[in-house]
Design a protein around this nucleic acid. Sequence first.
DNA 1: GTGGTCTAGACCACC
DNA 2: GTGGTCTAGACCACG
Lengths: 132, 132, 132, 132
Amino acid sequence: MALAFRLDASSGVPTYRQLADQVRRALLLGYLQDGDQLPPVRDVATALVVNPNTVAKAYRDLERAGLVKPRAGQGTFVTGSVGPVPAATYTQLSASLRRWVRSARGAGLDGEQVRALVAAVLDDEQVGGAVA
Amino acid sequence: MALAFRLDASSGVPTYRQLADQVRRALLLGYLQDGDQLPPVRDVATALVVNPNTVAKAYRDLERAGLVKPRAGQGTFVTGSVGPVPAATYTQLSASLRRWVRSARGAGLDGEQVRALVAAVLDDEQVGGAVA
Amino acid sequence: MALAFRLDASSGVPTYRQLADQVRRALLLGYLQDGDQLPPVRDVATALVVNPNTVAKAYRDLERAGLVKPRAGQGTFVTGSVGPVPAATYTQLSASLRRWVRSARGAGLDGEQVRALVAAVLDDEQVGGAVA
Amino acid sequence: MALAFRLDASSGVPTYRQLADQVRRALLLGYLQDGDQLPPVRDVATALVVNPNTVAKAYRDLERAGLVKPRAGQGTFVTGSVGPVPAATYTQLSASLRRWVRSARGAGLDGEQVRALVAAVLDDEQVGGAVA
DNA sequence: GTGGTCTAGACCACC
DNA sequence: GTGGTCTAGACCACG
């Protein structure tokens, strides 16, 4: 599976930004690597029921950031990977975070509260980064 | 200190939404409780260098959600708490999440990567909620 | 006069690029300086009989390049000047170039030939730079 | 060497147009004359790492402009010269322009600034012509 | 009234 | 069939 975009219309974040952020995230985590192809604009647009221009805008932003490069008639390709997390580290950290999430839900917190707690802790721990 | 609003202009999220979300977050985590007063619109506006209309809009949205109530000439007050997390649970969960964050940083992840991992796991664990 | 945009529809260069390049040029030559306001998107659009989105796209590109910054509800402003040419130098160089152009036309060259000669010499003299 | 094509991918000008324009320029300056052969489409395509269709399109455009004529199985040939500049005039003008360029660089202008100044003056002097 | 986002749809450049 | 450009026009965020 090339990349599964997800949109949250109620988040207030512009669609094109959600898309671009998800690609950035995939790069940061090593899901996407140098040379990989992004799904064609039209495919994403029809899959998400979104205007092709909106997807194109996201891709264009990524291009301006130097992360991908369009090749006319061929598609859009990742141009540089951004210090991906080693697989083992990634597996271990995501597993332990998953456990934490489940314990939180087990303690009775709903989705909103989990996100609120996470946001509060990340802010407090000075975890910067625009990709939220 | 009543509430320390933080704005991230680069996040793409509208200002008024960031403010409202932070109040929601404070309610969810029990920072704000029934009867507490929100900081005056003007104070927030000058502190954040933001148009008072923008702050007012955030408060209005919260009012429409039934979370706060303006009292003419007195200010805006929290009207209902939203299932706050019991203090003990909250303390424990946030402590363990803090440990997780530190282990992630210890493993070499930078802020962006931590946020990316968190976002990926939360999405994957179907943790809904509009407060991101 | 704030800035006189000129479009050459027959050049093959996309409109939004012509606009962005002309702003870049104005910055390079010191016509525009830090803090100056670009003409509003709508004004440019109506003046050039062009779609506002096209102008917005040009401004957006300039923003991504860090040259201008939009302030919601106020306009778009220049954020950094790019080593402008000292006025005296500029005056002298442009005067002598003007003389050259006139001597070329006096020798019977038409506009196309002048441009061709200029392009050939600039290429040959290794004058880089994307703003043509 | 018949003709050294140069492409600037970052210029925003379509590839086929850059090629055709360079041939036009060569004609205007007398580099190419009646009867000269253009380099074969395949050679240009492989040399520039460009699709042969793109080169063919450039040649076709030149043909439609009456500047070149394909001879089946032999190649594409220049059919008419376009008022070439007398050699002496050309030599003198290009030498003086070269001096100007060097004085500009000597005054501290970089490539971009030189091009910006040239473009500004040509525009101002009403030097038309689509070949930029 | 400023810029920003999104949609709908046409047409072009390139492979 | 890929991405790119442009138009037309609606609606939102912000001051």
